[in-house]
Design a protein around this nucleic acid. Structure first.
Lengths: 211, 211
DNA sequence: AATCGTTTTAAACAAGTGTTTTAAACGAAG
DNA sequence: CTTCGTTTAAAACACTTGTTTAAAACGATT
């Protein structure tokens, strides 16, 4: 691979290493070595390690949000059900990954890390920068499940989020495990096609309001 | 709180700090300071930081496994459905947490960290030590879903696992968010009572085998 | 060709890490 | 009381971390 722009080399290396080892476990020296640039380049171009982490997220999230926003605009007229909504989301995410499922898996793992690992600054950053776009998607979800209370819907959305983040972030490891355990391989889109009906059924589950 | 045994003081402090900040972000000095013991005590009693991490898991997992194993034995006679199976699992986990939901949340977060964070030694440790016990549970799941192909069931189990780990590990943060967003608070068992029907519906979702 | 702002380089910085070492304190057994 | 193995204590170990510095190299503009 030829020597690209310094900052994108750093972003590429950081994206890979962060998703493999986590944020704290990845040192700036790991990143700059893999990127083939000088150690000081990170602090020069990004300011600090924290800002580098945020930049990694922004590079993926910004194009994804504009893509999603445009698709949501033309979808607000119809009344899509969960299967349609989730397939749209999956398709948009894959599109933002330039069609490469591997990139989506990497980003999902980063997203999982952002929540599981301390990284309070990251949660705040994501919340402040990228929540408005998801508001439109939430409205469509609400329209698709008018029978659910706000509380019930809130939790079911996070159940979906968990299943998705966990599965897609470990997709390659799980696919390898599936091949080993039952001899049948799967590919990434197959997994998505199994996941979506599962989630839709969960969202449409009979309600059991607490006493 | 009075000064307990040195090793359990260390385990308590490590359990809390690991679940709050992650493994790499928690230093031995953090742990020994909170535990009120000398820094060298960790290496003296556990050998290394890695072995301390494993000891934290063992302290929870070992009693949980014996509890689960005994319950599974008397359950193999009946033909429990998913709601029963999941409720049994939840009840056992809560019981292993001495009835304190907070402790279960902490352990779930640790489990999530073990998978998301690098920590290859931990994944290997957990796999080698504690997988046999879950085999029995898997058999019951298989018996409860004979219409599913092995492949479909494999993936749906991991969908469940993801939703559960993600939700319960971040339960306190999510509960705070729920209270802030929609003014209604939830408690831990309520969340479990919402999660289980969601998962059961997902497991029983109509099958859409790939072409 | 000389000059400017921008970028890269190598070296050092202070701070924090896990671990080891040495000596001191403890608590029961002879 | 003394002696013994076990536990604690303080200090130092060698090493890695993120960040900063100051000089060198670069690249376009005048």
């Amino acid at each position: 691979m030829v020597q690209k722009d310094t900052v994108t080399s750093i972003l590429n290396a950081a994206e890979e290493l962060f998703s493999e080892r986590g944020f704290a476990e990845t040192s700036l020296r790991n990143i700059t070595t893999r990127a083939g640039v000088n150690l000081a380049a990170v602090n020069y171009h990004f300011g600090s390690k924290k800002e580098l982490i945020q930049a990694v997220f922004s590079r993926f999230l910004r194009p994804f949000c504009v893509l999603l926003e445009s698709k949501l605009a033309e979808l607000h007229k119809t009344q899509p059900d969960f299967n349609e909504l989730l397939m749209l989301m999956a398709h948009t995410a894959l599109q933002a990954s330039h069609g490469k499922p591997k990139r989506l898996a990497i980003f999902m793992r980063l997203l999982g890390l952002a929540y599981s690992q301390g990284q309070g600054h990251l949660r705040r950053f994501l919340q402040k920068e990228y929540t408005p776009v998801f508001g439109g998607f939430m409205q469509l979800i609400k329209a698709a499940s008018p029978e659910l209370s706000d509380e019930e819907r809130f939790w079911r959305i996070h159940f979906m989020l968990g299943a998705t983040a966990f599965t897609l972030s470990g997709a390659d490891a799980l696919m390898a495990m599936a091949e080993h355990d039952l001899g049948k391989g799967s590919d990434f889109t197959q997994v998505l096609n199994r996941l979506i009906p599962f989630l839709a059924a969960g969202m449409n589950a009979p309600i059991l309001e607490p006493t």
